[in-house]
C-alpha cells in the first residue's frame, strides 16, 4: 500500500496555478524527498495532504483512505512557517497539540516529558515559549509532529535554522522513525541531505512534476557521466567544447559533466599537456544538485 497517493491534483489561487495536475505515489516506510526551487508548489502539495488546503480537482489518499479528520490524525506535520503560541508553557502546548491529534491529555503529557528529556529540554518544561531560542522552538514543533507516533510524518524544511548538532539529533530521530515503519516526507533545498537520507524523490517545478522515483535508479539512469577532479594549475585545460558540457566548480574541486558519448580521458590528456597537476580524477554518478539544476534550467529555457 502507498502511504500517499495523489491523482491529477490541481490547486490554483486567484490568478496563479500553484499545482497543476500532479500525480505522485509515495511508498510506505520510505523517506521521500520533495524537491524543487522556490515557488515550485511543494508547500501547497504538502498542505493539501494534511488537509489545510482543499484541492480544486483530483483526489488524495493517505494510507489508502480518502482525506478526512481521521487521516489528519495519522499525519504529523512540521510546517515550513514556524511559530507557537508565545505565552504557553512547553509542557502545556505539547499536551494541547498531542490532544488535538487524538491522544488522551495525560498520555500526551507523559510522552512530552520523555521527548523533552531526549531533546535536551527536560529542565525547561515550565518555561513559556517566548523565552526559548528559535532552534529550541523548532525542536518543540518537531516533537509536536511526532508525539502521537503517526505512520506518516511530513516535515517541511526541517533543518533550516538548526545548528549542526541539533540537525544531527533530528536526523537520527527521523531515521529511527523510519526503522519503526513510519513514512517520512521531507521537503528541502539541501541536496546533500536528500542524498544522505532519501530513498526516493520527486522533483517539482512550477507546479508540475519533473521527475520522480527511486533516488538510486534516477542517478544510475544518468550513468557515470560526471568527472570529479581536484587539481593545481590553470583551469584553461577544461576548454574542450566537444567533450565537456558543463563544469561546476567548488574551488579546489570541480564536477565536470561530459557530453553524451564523450571520452573522459580527453580531459586528463589535456590537463597533462598543459602541465596541470592532477590530484584526483574520478568518474562518478551525477550529484543530485547537478540533476536538479539541469532539470530545472531545461524547463526554464
Amino acid at each position: 500500500m502507498e502511504a500517499v497517493n495523489l491523482e491529477n491534483v490541481k490547486k490554483s489561487y486567484d490568478s496563479f496555478d500553484a499545482v497543476r495536475s500532479l500525480t505522485m505515489e509515495i511508498k510506505e516506510g520510505a523517506v521521500f524527498g520533495l524537491l524543487g526551487p522556490n515557488g515550485a508548489g511543494k508547500t501547497t502539495t504538502l498542505r493539501m495532504i494534511v488537509r489545510i488546503l482543499i484541492p480544486d480537482e483530483g483526489s488524495i489518499r493517505v494510507l489508502g483512505k480518502p482525506l478526512s479528520e481521521r487521516t489528519q490524525e495519522l499525519i504529523g506535520y512540521l510546517p515550513e512557517e514556524r511559530g507557537l503560541y508565545r505565552h504557553m508553557r512547553l509542557l502545556e502546548i505539547l499536551r494541547f497539540l498531542g490532544a488535538l491529534k487524538g491522544l488522551p491529555e495525560a498520555e500526551a503529557e507523559r510522552r512530552a516529558r520523555i521527548w523533552l528529556d531526549r531533546l535536551g529540554l527536560g529542565d525547561r518544561t515550565n518555561d513559556e515559549i517566548h523565552n526559548l531560542s528559535r532552534g529550541m522552538q523548532q525542536k518543540i514543533q518537531f516533537i509536536a509532529a511526532v508525539i502521537h507516533r503517526p505512520p506518516l510524518v511530513i516535515l517541511d524544511e526541517p533543518f533550516t535554522g538548526l545548528d549542526p548538532v541539533n540537525a544531527a539529533v533530528i536526523k537520527d530521530v527521523m531515521l529511527e522513525l523510519r526503522q519503526q515503519g513510519a513514512t517520512i516526507i521531507l521537503s528541502t533545498h539541501r541536496m546533500d541531505q536528500v542524498e544522505q537520507m532519501c530513498d526516493s524523490i520527486c522533483l517539482m517545478n512550477k507546479g508540475q512534476k519533473l521527475l520522480d522515483g527511486d533516488l538510486k535508479a534516477i542517478k544510475r539512469s544518468y550513468g557515470n557521466n560526471t568527472v570529479r577532479m581536484e587539481f593545481v594549475g590553470d583551469p584553461a585545460f577544461m576548454q574542450l567544447p566537444d567533450t565537456i558540457e558543463r563544469t561546476n566548480s567548488y574551488g579546489e574541486m570541480v564536477d565536470i559533466t561530459l557530453r553524451p558519448g564523450a571520452d573522459a580521458q580527453q580531459i586528463l590528456r589535456s590537463a597533462v599537456e598543459r602541465g596541470v597537476q592532477v590530484r584526483r580524477f574520478e568518474l562518478i554518478e551525477p550529484p543530485l544538485n547537478d540533476i536538479f539544476i539541469q532539470k530545472v534550467s531545461q524547463r526554464h529555457a
Binding site: 489545510i52 489528519q72 506535520y77 512557517e81 514556524r82 511559530g83 507557537l84
Partner: peptide, 10 residues
C-alpha cells in the same frame, strides 16, 4: 505566529 498551520492540520 503561524500557529494556525499546525492547528488546521489537526
Amino acid at each position: 505566529t503561524r500557529m494556525i498551520e499546525i492547528l488546521v492540520s489537526s
